[in-house]
């Protein structure tokens, strides 16, 4: 049987290579944009940070889509599904490696952002202090900003996991469902099936999210932190339920794409 470590190494390597390509394109795009600004005569100390920041959103979205495509194709390819490893481990490793690959891109984007901001750091600090002097406590202090950024990062992480478990569930349900559809007009039927499955899954997930939010509201009076933690745990519980259903589908119904 294949070990967790070996299968992890394979999937991680593949996703790392993909993300390195995305980041390479990102750096080229930043360089070209800065050069263009320089040629146009609009270059100033803020240029690097502004360009890096504006590209980072596109890069994060591209990275997410690229990982999602790979993440889903792994479930239906013989090369991966022939590997002697349990479906639960298979699912967990696929999710974990996708998450690490995405986190890697986020960290590199943060470093690029921080490095480009450092060029003009003193000016940003001065502007911030000026705003504090003018508006006082209405402007949050540095500690609060860091806290908000960390909370946002945590929410993004949990939402990313939830997005992948939901997409996988929709994908695997559709593949399993298509086994029971007739050959004739299968494209139309597959399309209808996709729409129906997406609708049902999103409704069920929406219902569960409401349930989580309502129940956390009940406990939420004590403190905002406790409320926030409950939300996060609730999202993770929904993800876990989706993961269990997906593993069940892999084990019983989902077939690979026949390549012969």
């Amino acid at each position: 049987m294949t070990s967790f470590k070996d299968f992890f190494k394979i999937l991680m390597g593949q996703k790392f290579r993909q993300m390195n390509f995305v980041l390479l394109i990102n750096i080229i795009a930043i360089a070209v944009s800065v050069l263009w600004t320089l040629i146009n005569g609009d270059f100033n100390n803020n240029t690097f940070f502004q360009v890096a920041l504006s590209w980072s959103f596109i890069v994060m979205l591209w990275a997410f889509l690229r990982i999602t495509v790979t993440h889903e194709s792994i479930y239906t390819r013989d090369s991966y599904r022939l590997v002697p490893i349990s479906d639960t481990k298979f699912y967990c490793i696929n999710l974990l490696t996708s998450f690490i690959a995405m986190a890697y891109v986020a960290v590199v984007e943060f470093v690029i952002g921080a490095a480009t901001a450092a060029i003009n750091w003193q000016e940003y600090v001065d502007s911030f202090n000026m705003m504090r002097m003018m508006y006082g406590t209405r402007v949050p202090d540095a500690g609060m900003i860091v806290e908000s950024l960390l909370s946002m990062a945590l929410v993004m992480m949990v939402v990313t996991i939830l997005a992948w478990t939901t997409v996988s569930l929709i994908h695997l349900l559709t593949r399993a469902g298509s086994n029971f559809m007739p050959y004739r007009r299968s494209r139309i039927i597959n399309f209808v099936l996709y729409v129906v499955v997406i609708y049902i899954v999103l409704r069920v997930v929406g219902f569960m999210m409401n349930l989580v939010m309502n129940s956390t509201d009940m406990f939420g009076n004590s403190s905002d932190v406790w409320h926030f933690v409950l939300y996060i745990v609730g999202f993770l519980v929904v993800s876990a339920i989706e993961a269990v259903l997906s593993v069940y589908l892999m084990n019983r119904w989902v077939e690979t794409v026949s390549e012969s």
Binding site: S79, L82, V83, N251, W253, E259
Partner: peptide, 29 residues
């Protein structure tokens, strides 16, 4: 997946079965 029983070298669980079988992978991945 189908209904019925398949045993390879005494192993019936799918993940165990896979470790006893080498199948031509057409490298589509």
């Amino acid at each position: 997946h189908a209904t019925g029983d398949i045993t390879v070298a005494g192993a019936s669980r799918i993940d165990e079965r896979k470790s006893h079988v080498s199948y031509m992978d057409h490298l589509g991945a």
